[in-house]
Design a protein around this nucleic acid. Sequence first.
RNA 1: UCCUCGGUAGCUCAACGGCAGAGCGGGUGGCUGUUAACCACUAGGUUGGGGGUUCGAAUCCCUCCCGGGGAGCCA
Length: 430
Amino acid sequence: MTQTYISDIAAQAGETVELRGWLYNFRSSGKLKFLLLRDGTGIIQCVLSKKEAPDAVWEASETLAQETALILRGKVNQDDRAPGGFEIWLSDLQIVGASVDYPITLKEHGDAFLLDNRHLWIRSKKQHAVLRVRHQVIKAIRDFLDDRGFINFDAPILTPNASEGTTTLFKIDYFGENAYLSQSGQLYQEPGCAAFGKTYCFGPTFRAEKSKTRKHLTEFWMVEPEVAFMELPELMELAEDFICFIVNRALDRCQPDLEVLERDLEPLKRVQKPFPRMHYNDASKLLRDKGLPFTHGDDFGAPDEEAITAGSDRPVIVHRFPAAIKAFYMKPDPVDPTLSLSMDVLAPEGYGEIIGGSQREDDLKVLEEKIHEHKLPREAFEWYLDVRRYGTFPHSGFGMGLERTVSWICGIHHIREAIPFPRMIHRLKP
RNA sequence: UCCUCGGUAGCUCAACGGCAGAGCGGGUGGCUGUUAACCACUAGGUUGGGGGUUCGAAUCCCUCCCGGGGAGCCA
């Protein structure tokens, strides 16, 4: 008999089906048992009656425990008393794999315990929903870029040099040489877009920052598009379209999961073009007017980001940050060279920065000076300078953090739930 | 790295200087419509490690270890 998935059960009403999965929970009422079966596509209630089931089946059901792997057969019956409106009247039950003392119960648990049991926690309803949304967001990211003619051009994860600074890198031994885990694929996208016009990389990146906040992981996924001949205003439009597409896709395909997460959909529905643009100088003034202890010239802290997005029901784009606090490769603003042609997209509802990007410096001389100023090893960047030596051109790109985006869309409190196996300062297992 | 909170049964917590307990989970029994089912009984402990104060320490002090929350930085 072929396997039926729980997600398809409504179409099988009245039929006898075979389900394969794991026991989510069970309740017994003497001669009547209720089994909740989970198969990855959903959860369904199965009913077992001592009077109607074969004796061997009833006996087998006496040994059931949470997460026992099962093959069940029975008739699909519509019944309002069943969660979901359908239940299975069992005629056969086969134990595939026993489960003894499953640690995660349906009651409350602490964060540390759940993280230690992350490999099992992902079977729980909420975690399951978040990771399904993550899957759809990943697909939306690729669909958006692919449909616009971008080429997937992945950057290396083992790199010989730092792209932004040297304090936040994981250092590893590479056959006796120093190598680092990539903290951004951005430098490699620039030769990429010179070859293909529009490229993106999408993969894990690593930051050895000793951060302990709900917005930080030491290993996270980032998508980084880069476009030849694009300047800052169009880059902001690209970011805006990108986010709208992703949020709409989630609303379109993830409603049941967002319901499990009790996500209020109204704020997501309001995520539409155009996003407000705010010059750094205006953002700085706004913060000081609001009485926040903000120093003009600094980057924004978490309370600053919240204050900036507080008045908006959609993401806010802040542009032209001071050059001094941004990476060496960002192009200065011709209007005020102390500022850079950079932009951040801040998500509403307190989720903060989800995108950071800029127009890149395309002048060889200026870039050489910047590398010198930042005390970066010149020889490590010769290949990067070649992009300016051989047909230089204006170009722009940004990076979007996948887990921050998923957290925002799901409305979850901590970014660690937005990735299957989170890596944080005090957590390398499981 | 800094600030802050915590570590007691498998899990979530209580006891806060005087006999270490409850709920869930486990086990046994009961119940033909349960919804994190319910009811009864039952097993389960070197109170994170070390040191100190005290007649007496889970409780107070010192120290180490481990973790949660937050900050800076960033996506």
